[in-house]
Design a protein around this nucleic acid. Structure first.
Length: 273
DNA sequence: CAGCATGTTTGAAG
DNA sequence: GCTTCAAACATGCT
């Protein structure tokens, strides 16, 4: 489920499995998944090795032994990686496969085809061109406040906007707003200084917690809102128990904000404008 | 079977 | 040019 923490986990996975092995071949099932045309990609990467990685928001960059050849991966809603021995069956949905001379393969799994792979020649130039905001883990409180206050839209869609701050997705924004006691429909330019500080702290808390638990939701602290989402690894056997605010026990409300499903505590998250 | 989904891009409207 | 919003994308899962 690739939001920032999950992309970070994939970065670490790639970094510990797939560096310093010569790329012999790249299998591409569906060329629509590429943001660089197939022959350019093949010509640039065959014979190269991955040497390091960098993540910005939900973007994973993989540097090669040619400084001007960098792979960018985006995991869409459901993308994943799987490193496996070439003698084994190709994993399900591994629509792009990097085949190394070591006999191991790195599969880029795309169940829903919203994922993308392509080349960039300069990471910072790419970020500038795409106007990607600062990474959620790096952004300062004051920069966040400045970027947020320029927007008149609702705070939830503003936090989802990768140009404002990079890496927050739907569930993380809900969690951040819950931890910061901010209503998802408050206008971004009406947040007080105090709310802005709470928001910044909540972003750090949620991202660091998610990375620490390797994005495994069932292990998250009990005071996290995420447990209201009825995902397979919910920590509760009692389905009803996770429909209530973990702090005040008010029933959690479900709404659509900015076109996305949104959960919040109607008692503790109030519009303060 | 119908509805929903963790994300981004695009285009329309203001 | 900028902002905001809804739709579209392609497919899997419940």
């Amino acid at each position: 489920m690739p939001e920032l923490p999950e992309v970070e986990i994939r970065r670490q996975y790639l970094e510990t499995s797939s560096l310093f092995q010569t790329i012999q071949h790249i299998e591409v099932d569906d060329k629509k998944l590429l943001t660089t045309d197939y022959s350019t990609l093949i010509n640039a990467l065959e014979g190269r090795q991955f040497v390091s990685t960098r993540r910005v928001g939900k973007n994973l960059f993989i540097l090669t032994d040619d400084p001007a050849v960098i792979v960018r991966m985006h995991f869409g809603m459901t993308g994943d990686l799987e490193y496996y021995h070439a003698s084994l069956n190709r994993p399900r949905f591994a629509r792009i496969v990097f085949e190394f001379a070591t006999g191991y393969n790195l599969g880029f799994l795309c169940p829903r085809k919203f994922e993308r792979v392509g080349l960039v020649s300069d990471i910072d130039a790419y970020l500038l061109e795409k106007k990607i905001g600062q990474d959620g883990l790096d952004i300062t409180r004051d920069t966040l406040a400045d970027r947020v206050r320029r927007k008149k839209a609702l705070i939830k869609p503003v936090l989802l906007d990768q140009h404002v701050v990079a890496g927050l997705g739907n569930w993380i924004v809900d969690e951040v707003l819950f931890q910061a006691y901010v209503h998802p429909e408050q206008r971004a330019d009406t947040l007080t200084d105090g709310q802005m500080t709470q928001l910044h702290q909540a972003i750090q808390l949620v991202l660091e917690t998610a990375i620490r638990y390797e994005a495994t939701y069932r292990d998250f602290p009990n005071n996290f809102l995420i447990h209201v989402r009825e995902w397979d690894d919910s920590p509760y056997d009692d389905v009803e128990a996770h429909n209530y605010c973990p702090r005040c026990r008010t029933r959690i409300e479900r709404a659509t904000v900015g076109g996305r499903t949104t959960f919040f505590c109607p008692k503790e998250q109030v519009i303060n404008a």
